[in-house]
Amino acid sequence: MYDIRELEEAWLRYRKKRRRPFLIAAALFFAFIVLYVLEIKTGYLTRVFQRKGDTVVIVDTAIERNETFGTNKISLERSGRVSQIVEVRKDESTKPIAISKINKNDTMVLAPSSVDGSAKNIVIELKDTNDPQTLHDLEKRFKLSHDTDDSLFLAKSYYKRQQYEKAAYWAYQTNLINENIEEAWLVFVKSKYKLGRHAEAIKVLKAYIDKSGSIRAKVLLEKMQKHLF
């Protein structure tokens, strides 16, 4: 059972948000009525509009002064940034970088090719590891290679990206080639479950447990049966 309190609070926020346009509309309408009544009774609006000419002049000069002040500040900021960028570039150019290897987990290993060899390897983790293009290229490669490493990687990546249809598909393709890869079974089952196909997921998981006796699979089954997954 999930947290009802939390859900109630979220619902209150939702109701407030939903009501906001109505409240604003009602407030505007009320203000309009008030002004309308004032106008009829006292001619207030007509008087305000007559005076409007003076106000505009004052506002105009204020804006002019503001603008000149603004541009000064901007040019200062700009020059500051440029010098920073130049500094960074200088720094990089002293250590030319060679990409030594891009492995499947998309961890780029960058090795500065310094002459004396004193610099250590720099490892840069790319944040968006399994981006759609990489996955697409892997799909193409799999068609030729039929390598279960590729298909399993695809399955896991799609699972992480919450694209469960595709995750199940690639886990299954892995299985077609080698039916003894536990990861593939589990990704398949978990994807089916996430897609709401509980009965099917549990059925396949049981079949796998019969076949392999896997503890991990048993733990997962228990969770799924208790709706805790």
Binding site: Y2, L7, E8, A10, W11, R13, Y14, K17
Partner: peptide, 16 residues
Amino acid sequence: RKIIEMAAIKLGYIHV
């Protein structure tokens, strides 16, 4: 309606 909307929030049909 509240209960239906709570369920919708839970399932992500409504984002708060």
